[in-house]
């Protein structure tokens, strides 16, 4: 799949930067007395980053006020940047999808703190492998020679799961099995690529798929889900171990109890979540298992 032209990408980058400046300013807000401590939290980009940043802006403002700590946000330019960003930007924490959270826990010894529960009552997501209903593709053997679109190498639902699924069916080399494979950059883009016929097969997460179908039911009528992954934590706030344990405990406490106060519920509504629930390292066992299952396919794809 071709990428948009350089000028569009530059435009996007400029918008990112402007947005970040605005958000940093917004997060400064509670300041009757300016807090000195600061927490820099990273966010992985979603399809519509404007909408995403708006949601997180409210949360950052609320946390700043409750913790008396300046909570700043920074968006990572793509999935999987977590390791580099934690080092280069000295992030204190990040809202991470399950793959990057697993990497962060394993490689940086990050501590999973909480998961948001979405408006459907779920704190987990699962991967879907999708095709157009009129494609005639229903099983792996019919995928040979077709095109597949993944989301990003650092996603469970959009890459690790489809690789594990293919490997379970004896396919360990996407390069030779598919006519073409590509990365869409977001779950929604992967879904749109299949809808438009820009790819024959796509992988994406259920929460994004369900939201798109809710907004436009014709999407559900056109697509067929042919495989589903086990459920994994969708988003997890992970924090560096070096953060003051007292601040870490207060952060968890504020997030876990915010659905009990009127102000907290208002912010949750803007954040599009019902509440936060506690997270633990054991929640990521399923991701580790999938990673082992996909190992040969992953290696072959990386080598090409």
């Amino acid at each position: 799949m071709s990428r948009p032209p350089l000028s569009v990408r530059r435009f996007l980058l400029r918008l990112f930067l402007c947005l970040l400046l605005c958000l940093a300013a917004a997060a400064d807000r509670p300041a009757a007395a300016e807090p000195e401590e600061e927490l820099l939290i990273g966010i992985e980009p979603e399809h519509n980053i404007f909408e995403q940043m708006e949601r997180y802006r409210y949360l950052a403002g609320y946390l700043s006020g409750q913790l008396r700590v300046q909570v700043k946000l920074t968006i990572m330019s793509r999935y999987g940047e977590v390791i580099e960003r934690f080092k280069s930007l000295r992030l204190d924490g990040a809202f991470l999808t399950s793959y990057t959270a697993t990497m962060g826990i394993n490689e940086l010894n990050l501590e999973p703190v909480v998961n948001p529960v979405n408006l459907n009552g779920q704190s987990t997501s699962q991967g879907y492998i999708l095709v157009r209903k009129d494609s005639g593709i229903r099983a792996v053997e019919q995928m040979r020679g077709k095109s597949i679109v993944f989301v990003d190498p650092a996603t469970v639902e959009g890459y690790l799961f489809p690789l594990a699924y293919l490997e379970q069916h004896g396919i360990t080399d996407s390069n030779s099995f598919f006519h073409r494979f590509s990365f869409a950059g977001s779950h929604a883009s992967a879904i749109f690529a299949v809808l438009d016929g820009r790819a024959d097969i796509g992988a994406a997460k259920d929460t994004v798929y369900n939201r798109l179908v809710h907004n436009d039911p014709s999407i559900g009528q056109e697509l067929e889900i042919i495989a589903q992954s086990p459920k994994v934590p969708e988003i997890t706030l992970c924090i560096r171990k070096e953060i003051d344990p007292e601040l870490r405990a207060r952060l968890a406490e504020v997030l876990l109890t915010m659905d009990k106060t009127a102000d907290g519920r208002k912010v949750l509504e803007q954040f599009k979540a019902l509440r936060f629930v506690k997270s633990s390292k054991a929640d990521f066992d399923g991701v580790m298992k999938m990673e082992q299952e996909a190992r040969a396919a992953w290696r072959n794809t990386e080598n090409n």
């Binding site: 799949m1 071709s2 948009p4 032209p5 000028s7 569009v8 435009f11 996007l12 918008l15 399809h47 519509n48 404007f50 950059g185 977001s186 929604a188 883009s189 749109f192 690529a193 438009d196 820009r198």
Partner: peptide
Amino acid sequence: PIHLLIEATRVIE
């Protein structure tokens, strides 16, 4: 919208 533009295979500018 930006999120629409990024879907394009090609953009004429």
